[in-house]
């Protein structure tokens, strides 16, 4: 089973916003450099435990934080 989720953003500005929101909700996650195989962006994306994917997605949508996509690895 795939156990990590990666949220990709159009910009690190949005990654920092999401990081701030997930921290406040105590959702286990970390900022990591964007893996080259997933995107050409220079900055960061967010890695989280995949079992919280539904909650993470809901939070991002509630806060209107735009993101590119969520991948599982």
């Amino acid at each position: 089973m795939l156990n990590k989720g990666i949220i990709l953003f159009h910009s690190s500005n949005y990654a920092m916003w999401a990081d701030n929101v997930l921290k406040k909700k105590n959702i286990d996650h970390r900022l990591i450099p964007v893996p080259r195989e997933l995107s050409s962006d220079c900055g960061y994306c967010i890695e989280f435990e995949n079992n919280s994917a539904a909650e993470v997605t809901k939070l991002l949508k509630n806060e209107n934080i735009e993101f590119d996509r969520i991948e599982t690895i």
Binding site: S12, M16, W17, D19, N20, G43
Partner: peptide, 22 residues
């Protein structure tokens, strides 16, 4: 440098900038 590299110091700079925006 915020938003560019993926290391810890870049993240900390990015967080400062985000908190200022907020």
């Amino acid at each position: 440098n915020p938003g560019r590299s993926g290391h810890r110091l870049a993240e900390e700079a990015g967080e400062i900038v985000f908190l200022a925006r907020k």
